[in-house]
Amino acid sequence: MPAASMYGRLPILKMLAAIIAMTVVICAVMLSINWDGQAASTAAPKIDDLLNVMIIISSFVFSVVIVALFYALWKFKVKPGDESDGEPIHGNTRLEIAWTLIPTIIVLFGGGYSWKVLDEIEEPVKDAMTVDVFSQQYAWSFGYPGKDNVYSQGELHVPVYRQIQFKMHAQDVIHSFWVPEWRIKKDNVPGITTTAIVTPDRVGTYQLICTELCGFGHASMRATVVVEPPGQFQKWVAGLKEKVPQPLEQSVTQDTETNPPPLTAGGA
């Protein structure tokens, strides 16, 4: 069966129209919903945009599959009593090349875009503030910068509009730090210091959720996150009395960084 005559018998334009119409409808519904919930960091809108672009592409891919499948089922479903075989078409090289190359281009575009977003949301700035995050079964606590090493338990305060570099330490098993409104998550791993970068851009109270299974108390391992204007934050920190306890302090000094710069790590 020559390729041309094969395509010629399919209503390509109508199918294309159906695919586009379906894509538009799905996108209209899907994009009108705020899937990720409230956004409260500079990274959040970038991640949400990436998600929305992916929703558009995915709607198209899904529509292609659905239209192609249901058209085939409608058009080529066997008539009752017909025992004959279909047409002996074994393939079509051009079509096969097309559905290898086009998806490759789409996923590489997605990969490039994701790479760009990743670089943007993790771009460190000079005046970033470092906050230590300590996790243990089943509680969070936090150490703030300054020579006093002040410390708070179960409640994290950060100033708004300032980049925070969280240095994370776990005392027993792996925990994971997630504030959904910030869209940022990072495991806290015993023995190493992991880093997450966040710039909160919305004042408010949020929840810090442990997302790595850590034992029977995992579901209740939560903490409160308060994002407030810098003045208020300073006042709150100044009011803290406790200092970072000795064992936690030790994990700050002894844990190794996960990410030594690749070339300097070996002394090169």
């Binding site: 599959v65 085939a72 080529f76 479903k77 047409e87 998806p103 490759t104 994701s114």
Partner: peptide, 28 residues
Amino acid sequence: MLTTLLIAVPTGIKIFSWLGTLYFGKIH
């Protein structure tokens, strides 16, 4: 990430080829 995304390509080939198999067949 890039290798993960690329693995969608052979998987996609399979989906499209199954769909292609249906065309001009006699679907029971």
